[in-house]
Design a protein around this nucleic acid. Structure first.
Lengths: 126, 126
DNA sequence: TAAACAGTTGCAAGATTGAGCAAGTGTACG
DNA sequence: CGTACACTTGCTCAATCTTGCAACTGTTTA
């Protein structure tokens, strides 16, 4: 009953390529910078965590120091600091020191828009 | 020794207060839906992989079938299928069958905008 | 100077994930 | 009917990431 489909090894067909539409395809390898692609993915990845995203949502309103964030979210301070560190390493947020407090804010409006768009889309989606 | 830091910056709160959370931080802990937050994070997370992002960038132009994507990116078909599966599970892409081919496309314009914004930001890279 | 507060970082345990191979499902066509 | 093609999915392995506690740096105040 079983048909061992031992057709061949990999080599995803390179000769005929009669694939989808019968050969009307022009496969352009996409001229997007690899680095830009990776960078964008890194940013998305930084945003891809509920905990970090919540941090960013708060920071959309204004700057907060770590203590405030930790208190508002009712989470241990080191955890918050660590998340902020990740976000900062991707240049999603910026930090400035004021006395013995460190205030964090979104890096720029671009990030803000990204966050807003994502959340809005998530809300619309059923 | 006693006085050295003459920052002279207007502290956000009275410097008399021991900390920034002296008690006037009674503002609401962000009224963003938890579900929306998680959902948004899930979407960002789906976009947060260079391989998947590349797929999405291609799909921004038009629909592609799995074979075509695998060929264009020179990667094994199961790998592509797997990535598409993840993207589909987050409703980032949609699939439609046509004969023995399965065509994938971006779920909606919102996603497209999200991808574009992210890549553009990555290119600018402040 | 020492103590207290604000944040950061190191290290190990735990969970989640992505890749690769192989086998399974399903469709078209001889 | 059965084969070839297109795609999916189980499976395991390895890499990655998050967290939690504790220790450390740095700043302000007594």
């Amino acid at each position: 009953m079983d048909r061992m489909n031992s057709d061949a090894k990999s080599t995803p067909t390179e000769d005929d390529s009669p694939s989808c539409l019968g050969g009307d395809h022009e496969h352009h390898p996409v001229k997007i910078d690899d680095s830009a692609c990776e960078r964008a993915a890194a940013i998305f990845r930084a945003l891809g965590d509920p905990q970090r995203l919540r941090l960013l949502i708060m920071l959309e309103a204004r700057s907060y120091c770590v203590s405030e964030l930790a208190q508002s979210l009712a989470e241990p301070l080191p955890a918050i600091s660590q998340r902020l560190r990740i976000l900062k390493s991707e240049r999603v947020v910026r930090s400035r020191r004021e006395g013995k407090h460190v205030f964090y804010s979104l890096a720029d409006g671009h990030i803000s828009r990204l966050v807003t768009n994502g959340v809005m889309h998530a809300m619309e989606d059923t």
